[in-house]
Amino acid sequence: MPAFNYTASDWPTFSFIRIPGLVTAHIWVSIPFCLLYLVAIAGNALLFILVRVEKTLHEPQFYFLAMLALTDLGLSLTTMPSVMAIFWFDVHHIGLNACLTQMFFIHTLSSVESGVLVAMAFDRLVAICAPLNYTRILTHCTVVCLSGAALIRGATLLAPLPFFLKTFPFCGANVLSHSYCYYPDMLNLACGDVTFSSVYGLVFVLCTFALDAVFILVSYMKILGTIMKLGTRDRNWRSLQTCACHLCTVFVFYLPLISLAVLHRYSQDTSPILYTTMSNTYLLMTPLLNPLVYSLKSRQIQGALRKRFWVQRVIAGE
């Protein structure tokens, strides 16, 4: 299908949705949102910098953690401008090109995060189930290849999405269901036959995010099976506790993501409150929780934080 030729007079704009029922309280609602974004940005930035500068953290699992933090940082910075613009300045309109750019980065970074979570699950699988082969399998080359594959997969497979949307005219009210640009949401507003574009997006979600989620679950099932065979009860409990926390962050990321993709295609009467809740859980809670979960459960990171804090106090003369 040839691209639709817009003129200056009919160039489309899109409207972000406000939180239903809380339009008059946006200033007050913005306070917790702003704090959550700041905590997520600060936590992920600190985690990335700590892994980069602390030599004791130069190991495969922490390299993956640093990439996860960098991805979460990018997701927060991608969505924060439009979310806070609605709350603070009542700016809820965005042009087509800006919307497509935000949409591309949101979906690409989400795909990269999914790939990094797979790599982290693989790292733990090898470390627990084949510890003698860990250094042979998880080399620096392997880390670079897995990280690069996650990035290339996301950028390559998602690059067509903006071009798909450019082929359609938008002839309605163009009111989005979220406070950011989301591909299935924009596709629902397009005029014309969107069957191919919709199927492509859904197949991508099922063949990447769904398969990634299955691999992660199978990996942790294998890990749990191996842990249960160990003889030391304390070690079993610590490992089970760590796996449970990791799985919680995985569920927080995957369940809203896959549910949103399905709802936008097969349910036109879904409550706006449900859309808002799931979208904020998907793109805000994951960057917020990841630094806390992975840092609080890692003794190496805790030790590096204490070391850096102690050095700073010594330099300050305290």
Rank of each mutant, 00 (worst) to 15 (best):
D234L: 06
L211V: 14
V199G: 05
V194M: 09
T232W: 00
A190T: 08
Y182V: 01
D193Q: 11
C191N: 15
N236W: 10
T249A: 13
C191G: 13
L224I: 02
V218A: 13
L240M: 12
T226V: 03
I223W: 00
C243R: 07
R233M: 04
F196H: 14
Q241V: 01
T242E: 10
T249Y: 12
V250I: 10
D193L: 05
V194Q: 11
C207P: 04
Y220F: 15
F251A: 12
R233E: 09
T208E: 12
C248G: 13
Q241N: 09
R238S: 07
G201T: 07
K222N: 00
S198Y: 03
V194P: 04
S198I: 08
V250E: 04
Y254N: 01
Y254H: 10
D212R: 02
I227T: 08
W237D: 13
I216Y: 02
A210K: 08
I216R: 06
Y180V: 09
I216D: 00
Y220P: 03
K222L: 11
F215E: 03
D212F: 06
G225W: 02
S239H: 05
S179K: 00
L230S: 08
M228Q: 06
C243L: 08
C191T: 15
T242W: 14
I227G: 05
A244Y: 09
Y182C: 01
Y220V: 07
Y182W: 06
N188Q: 06
F196E: 10
T195F: 11
S239L: 10
P184I: 01
Q241C: 10
F209M: 11
D185I: 05
C207W: 06
Y220K: 01
W237Y: 12
V203I: 15
L224Y: 01
K222R: 13
T232K: 00
S179M: 09
R238Y: 04
V205P: 00
Y183E: 11
C245R: 08
Y220H: 14
V205W: 02
L240K: 07
V218H: 09
T242K: 14
K222Y: 02
V205D: 13
I227M: 00
V205T: 14
G201A: 10
F253H: 05
L247A: 04
L224P: 00
N188R: 08
Y254P: 02
T242S: 14
S197T: 15
L230W: 09
F253M: 01
L202Y: 14
C191Y: 14
C248N: 09
T226C: 10
V199L: 15
A213L: 14
Q241W: 03
G225E: 04
W237F: 12
Q241R: 12
V205F: 12
W237Q: 14
V214T: 07
M186L: 12
A210Q: 10
V199K: 15
F204P: 04
T208Y: 10
T249Q: 08
D234G: 07
G192I: 11
H246K: 09
S239T: 04
P184D: 02
S198T: 12
G231F: 01
W237V: 15
C243T: 09
